[in-house]
Computed example of a mutant assay.
Amino acid sequence: MRFQHSSDIWRDFPELVPGVLVATGITADVSVDDAIAWCAERAADRLETASEGELPAIQAWRRAFSKMGLKPTQYRCASESLLRRFRKEGALPRLHPLIDLCNALSIAYAIPVAVFDIAKISQYVEVRYAAGDETYLTFSGETEHPPPGEVIFADAEGRAHARRWTNRQSGHSAVRDTTTDVLIVAEALHDTARKDVESLMAGLSDELAAGWSMTPPEYTILSPSEPRFEFPV
């Protein structure tokens, strides 16, 4: 199985820095409270001096959304949406320890983090422009068809596992209590993206090892010269 961005995405967004990691042996019975508390404190510190829309990582995604023809205040990247909710409510909802951990890291770094159940993916995931015939399953069970040109996470069967790039994931490959193996992707576009993505992925690997008693998973930072991440199923 593999993960990659299409050559068109690299051409249009050469500043992109993706971090990719695969973790196996995930369960829903661990505590990540300490990590969440640290991330929440860091996010709160950020928001004391600037709104989420003023953070460089979020501004870079807003520019990308505008470039894709999307109104950035109507369609927000996942990290901006999480930061908005955190600012208003002071906390994020608890869903599953792995999702809670990734959401917490996302607000700590202001970087979108996507988590996919590998069992629900067919052969590969490619971030690419939609052809228009792909299917996307919402969390409410409705089927949508992303329009041609929209950036999606697509697999070999034409399923869109995320729409509008980092805006919204699909219910089809969402992490559930039965999930054991996951693909995790963090993407950034701002000036210090490489340093920040590396720090986020290193922290994620350490927290996975601590919480799930596993060997720290190796992660990869992709680039135009090394755009593909391959992993066994």
Rank of each mutant, 00 (worst) to 15 (best):
I9G: 04
C39P: 02
W38Y: 07
D29K: 01
H190K: 04
W212F: 10
A210T: 15
V125M: 02
G19A: 08
K67A: 11
Q74F: 07
Y136A: 00
H190E: 01
R63E: 01
A60I: 07
P112I: 07
S66T: 15
T73D: 15
A202P: 00
D100P: 06
P18N: 02
D177T: 14
D117Y: 08
Y136N: 01
A210V: 14
Y124K: 06
W10Q: 04
A210H: 09
P217S: 08
P72D: 12
L222V: 13
V125A: 02
I118E: 00
L222Q: 13
S66W: 08
K195R: 02
E142F: 09
Q74I: 08
S213Q: 15
S7A: 07
I152T: 13
E89C: 14
F153M: 11
P217N: 13
G158E: 12
A160M: 14
Q59W: 05
M68T: 03
F3N: 03
V175W: 00
S31R: 11
Q59M: 14
D100K: 05
I36R: 05
D33N: 04
L16T: 06
S31A: 13
T178D: 07
G171V: 08
E150I: 07
R46M: 08
R76S: 13
R11P: 06
N167K: 09
A40Y: 06
I9H: 04
H161M: 12
R168L: 14
S106F: 00
I58M: 05
V32P: 06
T166D: 03
A78Y: 05
H5G: 02
A60F: 04
I111V: 06
I184P: 12
D196C: 05
W212D: 06
M1C: 14
K71Q: 05
P232K: 06
P18H: 00
F139V: 05
F116I: 04
Y136C: 03
E134R: 05
R63H: 04
H161S: 10
A202L: 03
Y109L: 02
P146F: 01
V113K: 00
S81Y: 03
V185Q: 00
M214L: 15
D34Q: 03
W165Y: 15
T215M: 09
E150N: 12
F231Y: 09
P14N: 06
F116K: 02
R63C: 02
M214A: 13
A186R: 15
Y129I: 01
E144C: 02
I118P: 03
L183I: 14
A209T: 15
A23W: 09
V17K: 02
A156G: 09
G19F: 08
Q59C: 11
Y109H: 03
E157I: 13
W10K: 02
D133W: 11
P232D: 09
R194P: 04
D117W: 11
R164V: 14
A186Y: 14
H145Q: 05
V22A: 00
L208H: 12
D45W: 04
I58W: 00
G171D: 03
L137R: 11
P147Y: 00
P18D: 01
A154Q: 15
R164F: 11
A119I: 12
H96I: 14
K71F: 01
L82M: 15
N103S: 15
A154D: 10
G69M: 09
A43F: 08
E48K: 11
R63M: 04
L95R: 13
P224F: 12
A119R: 12
F65S: 10
F231N: 06
E15Y: 05
S225I: 07
T24W: 01
